[in-house]
């Protein structure tokens, strides 16, 4: 595209200024559904990172031969393929994690941040740039889910990454935080705080 963005910028935009969850409000379904613990958030984040990275590389490689009329079906096939790879991998290597993420792994297929990156970026850029862009997006998605998961896990169960550091004697778990309601509360507050901070800093975004 015209006016080359620097490679570093291509990476960092996904982390903050154009973060999929907190700025573009994409991928909210997994962000709300599986952020009930830090481990689940991390696993979902990395799984999504893998899919967005592989799909972006693949799409960028074949971008010149994809006919315009079937570009969406082609991308969906590619994305669905890599999602299934992740699903099988988790089942084989991390059965407990696969169980706790349940149907949300197959549902990565319909996470629009992945199709979004493939459609709006990988289709028009070189493989190298697509890798950098996908990494920024993937890591940006992962950190949000880990932070969200950690906040909900600490408040909801008094533990972090499964390690119990607040005992029931001194701390009453806020059960609501690990229920769906807690997801909306924490994500809403997080987006609010981050946008407030961005606006105060002069909001170059």
């Amino acid at each position: 595209m015209a006016g080359k963005t620097s490679l570093g910028r291509e990476f960092t935009k996904g982390l903050w200024d154009e973060n999929a969850v907190i700025k573009q409000l994409l991928g909210l379904c997994p962000a709300l559904a599986v952020s009930n613990s830090a481990v689940n958030g991390l696993a979902m984040g990395l799984a999504t990172y893998f899919v967005v990275l592989s799909a972006s590389i693949f799409v960028s490689l074949i971008k010149s031969v994809i006919p315009k009329d079937v570009r969406i079906p082609v991308k969906i096939i590619i994305i669905a393929g890599f999602v299934t790879v992740v699903d099988i991998f988790l089942k084989a290597m991390f059965p407990a994690l696969s169980k706790s993420l349940g149907p949300y792994i197959p549902l990565i297929v319909v996470n629009c941040l992945i199709l979004g990156r493939a459609e709006s970026f990988a289709s028009h850029h070189s493989v190298g740039r697509s890798i950098i862009d996908a990494s920024g997006t993937g890591i940006g998605f992962t950190w949000v889910l880990v932070v969200l998961g950690a906040v909900r896990e600490i408040l909801g169960t008094g533990s972090i990454f499964g390690f119990q550091f607040l005992t029931e004697a001194t701390f009453t778990p806020w059960i609501v935080m690990i229920l769906p309601g807690g997801a909306f509360l924490s994500l809403g507050l997080m987006i609010g705080i981050i946008n407030y901070v961005s606006a105060r800093r002069g909001g170059q975004a």
Partner: peptide
């Protein structure tokens, strides 16, 4: 294009599944 892409992805999936 659709056939080739689907075949490649299908091949990848078959291999991964067989291993796992």
């Amino acid at each position: 294009v659709l056939t080739v892409v689907a075949t490649i992805i299908g091949g990848v999936l078959a291999t991964v599944y067989k291993t796992a």
